[in-house]
Every structure is written in C-alpha cells, then in structure tokens.
C-alpha cells in the first residue's frame, strides 16, 4: 500500500456505556479512496467522528501522515489537513453560502500537493453555489446543501477528505453529480474515505474497501474482489 494518509490503530470508542467501535484498525493510503461500508449502526459515522476528533478514542491511536492526532481537538485535526463532509450536511444555516465557505478558508498545508481551493475555484466546480452566493444556506435545496458541505470542506485545503454518506437523501440525478465531483477530487490527488450505505456507488470509485459489522472491522478488501463474493456481501451488508 502507498504511504498511509490516515490510520486507525486498535481504536475503541464509546457512546456512554455503549461500546461502538471495538479494536478497529484500517488505513487510508495517500491519494487513494477507501470505501467504508456497513449496515446502519455498524460504526461508519463513528469512525468519521473519531477520525475528526469529535468523539475521543478510549483506546488505540489515530495518525495523520504518521503523526498521532488521537487526543487532539477537531480544530487541530483540521489544521493537520483533515476535512469532514458530515452526515446530514450540517451547513451553517444562518450564514450565507459565501459565508459558509469563507469561515472554513485555510491556506494549504505544507505537505499538501493539491491545488489551492478558493471561493472562485469552488464556484467553478459548483456554479449553482455562485448563483446563490448571497442566499442563506438554509434556503438551499438538499443537493445544493451537499455541494456547499463539500465546498466548505475543500476550503480548508485538506489532504484527507472524510465523506459521510454524501448521497443520503438526494435524487438520483444529484447523486450522479455528487459522485462525479468525488471522482474529480480523487483524481486531484486527495486521499478520501467515502462512507456509503449503497455499495455500488463505492465500488465504482474506491480503491480499497473496509466493511464494518457491529463496531468491528469485518472485511478489508478491494471492490473487484468483493464484487465477486456475493455471499460475503450478503453476510455483512445484507445485499446482492
């Protein structure tokens, strides 16, 4: 595997007394896309929250390009080059579209090798956001909000992008647009973890796959290998 961009090593995490991640280990290679799959409640979003510092890992280590970030708060993990497109989008509803982007602006990290994202380049990628730049974000459609959530994450000029169910609740045509954007981001050299309920979306774009089941890593594989193993998919995802 290529250099590790983000790694979770033997991570345990809890919501109250509930042991939601149990000895979870996986690795996102640099400039690769890792698809994180699993049923509802498998721990996918928890992995994103732990990776971003929103939920502390009780045991284990999280590393960004080899540097431990396990105990760091989200703002410091963000500064180390990690960005999150959260489940449910969670845009700042009382800010305008432009303000949502401006507040997240950050110069690219020294180790970054990606083009610097600015409001202009975000608007080039999502012209609809430019049309609505002065509108309150709360008034955007679901698809536009998703574009804004992606744009906001990119404004941090991250090296690692965590995308938590970006297709959730969107019309098929908008999902296709979002996936096309994700493909472009991958081609730009970003290291991406893509969490999805729908494995077919992930198989199309991911290099590596991790399947979680009840808070544990159940499968580490590749899309090509998994697509041939219907029984495994049925066992862990309940599909095919």
């Amino acid at each position: 595997m290529a250099t590790s961009a983000l790694s979770l090593e033997h991570v345990d995490a809890f919501y109250g007394d509930s042991h939601v991640l149990q000895d979870v280990s996986f690795e996102l290679g640099e400039a690769r896309m890792l698809g994180l799959l699993g049923r509802n409640g498998a721990g996918k979003s928890t992995c994103m929250n732990v990776g971003m510092g929103l939920l502390g890992a009780r045991n284990g280590a999280i590393k960004v390009f080899g540097q431990p970030v396990t105990r760091l708060p989200p703002e410091q993990i963000s500064a180390s080059g990690v960005a999150l497109v959260p489940q449910g989008r969670r845009i700042f509803r009382s800010l305008t579209v432009r303000e949502n982007l401006v507040v997240a602006a950050r110069k690219p990290g020294t180790a970054g090798r990606h083009a610097e994202w600015t409001i202009e380049t975000i608007f080039e990628m999502f012209p609809r956001l430019q049309e609505r730049a002065s509108q309150m974000a709360a008034h955007l459609s679901g698809g536009e909000q998703q574009m804004l959530a992606i744009g906001r994450a990119l404004m941090g000029n991250p090296r690692i992008l965590l995308m938590d169910e970006p297709s959730e609740g969107l019309a098929p045509q908008i999902v296709a647009e979002v996936m096309a954007t994700i493909r472009k981001l991958k081609e730009s050299g970003l290291s991406i973890i893509l969490v999805e309920q729908n494995p077919n979306l992930v198989f199309d774009v991911a290099d590596d796959i991790v399947i979680l089941n009840t808070g544990r890593v159940a499968v580490v594989s590749t899309p090509a290998a998994l697509q041939k193993d219907d029984a495994l998919l049925r066992q862990h995802l309940g599909v095919f």
Binding site: L54, P73, P74, E75, S78
Partner: peptide
C-alpha cells in the same frame, strides 16, 4: 462542533 471541524 461543525465550526470546530472546519477549523474555527
């Protein structure tokens, strides 16, 4: 929380 995630 999201504000912190975007680095604020």
């Amino acid at each position: 929380d999201m504000a912190r995630v975007v680095g604020i």
